[in-house]
Amino acid sequence: MKNNELDKLKNLWQSHTDNSDIDMTHIIPEARKQLKAQHKAMLISNIFVSISFVAVFIVILWVGTSFPGRSIYFYASLGAMGLLLVSLLAGMWAGVRFRNINSDMEPRRYIDSSIKKLKIRHFMLKYATPGFLILLLLVFMFYYADLFEGESQQFKILAYGITVLYFLIITVLMRKKRSRQLKEIVRLLQYLNLWKDNLKDEQGDPANEDTMSSMAL
């Protein structure tokens, strides 16, 4: 493409103008509202997650020390519950960290941050959610082992059976929605990775930069 051809295209392109009237009376209040909501959400999330972290440890410690002489299963269920809540809160932290990605950052960094955010969501959905359910089931199992000590075999089978069935139903109900969400995340990751690849520097050599910038259009 020659210089004059490109100039012609530039003129042609720039002849397409926006004739719409921008309604500033709507845009500025809307932007102010969004900004305020964003700050509020960020503040609340941070406070909520911090308080939750502290509360979780206090409660676990309190329960652990308030019931002395219980079986090993009781403490195992408590440990599993602690692990469960800590992982849940860690996931929430990650979500809070990536909630606001500033749109004025360099597109490459913006894309990287968006990819990280999506990868966390992908991990949470694909591995953390089933892991969470398994761990929760384990908490119940350990707790039942302690609680139903001395009960009849029949009662135990019934209690365990109903709990496992409940978890199975939850898993089946969640599966469709989860797989749809995962598919959507994969689609977005694919799109953002294409952008990322495109913005990856192929020319690291400064000598090339001079050549390229002076290259005739």
Partner: peptide
């Protein structure tokens, strides 16, 4: 704008 090298933009 894109924070990539001029050479890369050229290519």
């Amino acid at each position: 704008i894109l924070n990539i090298s001029v050479g890369h933009v050229g290519v």
